[in-house]
């Protein structure tokens, strides 16, 4: 195992119970330390399934996953301490305020007291939410919820951050502040794994990408290199060439 790899995925297959076809079908890739890795694909490609196995929510049917040198199968409790997860769903309690939500999540990571309070306020401020700290999250717009959802995943400064479609359904301003912040965190050494179906965003943000379709990885590498090899003008064009124009469920 190389020390420079944050994550190694080796012939991973995931078949859901009661389902005949694999959601993720024999995929392998390596994510270097301190990279921003984009796992890109159309709806139903297997992005969420892959991320769920990586952060220990699902167990692999076959294959091996190693996170920071730890086995996802047997050392998930150690892994949980060093990763942060920003789920695809807005997993916040709507009747709690932004501050209360974040305090609870911080507590769950063992953060507490004044330092947690400062930490939360600093983040709320950075994401333009200070004046909404005491409002219930249920009253927030989609973009505001996404921002709180992101803060929830990074309060404890994880080594590795997983984000599942963190910018889906948000306006350009919110998307911008989110992606900019991800770059700041990455400069600080955080490894970021991110899924999206927004090609332009991924092209600007990612240092590495893998394109997944029907549970299989069909391309992986640095975005610029891949686009060039493929002879496309941009990532979106390449993506359509590779995955076809068939509509997905």
């Amino acid at each position: 195992m190389s020390l420079s790899a944050a994550i190694e995925v080796d012939h991973l297959t995931k078949i859901y119970k009661g389902s005949g076809t694999p959601a993720v079908d024999d995929i392998s890739f390596t994510i270097p330390n301190s990279s921003i890795f984009g796992l890109l694909g159309p709806n139903g490609a297997g992005k969420t399934t892959t991320i769920s196995v990586l952060c220990g929510l699902l167990s692999a049917s076959t294959g091996k996953v190693t996170i920071a040198g730890l086995s996802a199968e047997t050392q998930s409790s150690e892994i949980k301490k060093i990763i942060g997860v920003v789920p695809q769903d807005i997993a916040l309690y709507p009747t709690l305020t932004a501050f209360e939500n974040l305090r609870y999540i911080g507590n769950m990571y063992g953060l507490k007291g004044d330092s947690l309070k400062e930490n939360i306020n600093k983040h709320l401020d950075h994401f333009g939410l200070s004046q909404h700290a005491k409002k219930q999250v249920g009253s927030f717009s989609g973009g505001m919820k996404r921002r709180v959802n992101l803060i929830a995943g990074i309060l404890h400064q994880p080594e590795i951050l997983f984000l599942d479609e963190p910018t889906v359904g948000v306006d350009v301003q919110s998307r911008n502040v989110i992606t900019e912040h991800l770059q700041v965190l990455n400069k600080g050494g955080m490894t970021i794994i991110y899924t999206s179906h927004l090609m332009e965003e991924a092209e600007n943000l990612c240092t590495e990408i893998a394109i997944i379709d029907n549970g299989k990885i069909i391309a992986k590498g640095m975005p610029k290199v891949l686009i060039k090899e493929n002879g496309s003008a941009n990532l979106e064009q390449m993506f359509l060439k590779l995955t076809g124009k068939r509509l997905r469920d």
């Binding site: 220990g56 929510l57 997860v85 789920p87 695809q88 769903d89 309690y93 999540i105």
Partner: peptide, 13 residues
């Protein structure tokens, strides 16, 4: 449904 159960599962402890 809203994923907070899943989130809790990704946390230590």
């Amino acid at each position: 449904d809203d994923g907070s159960y899943t989130r809790v599962l990704t946390m230590p402890g």
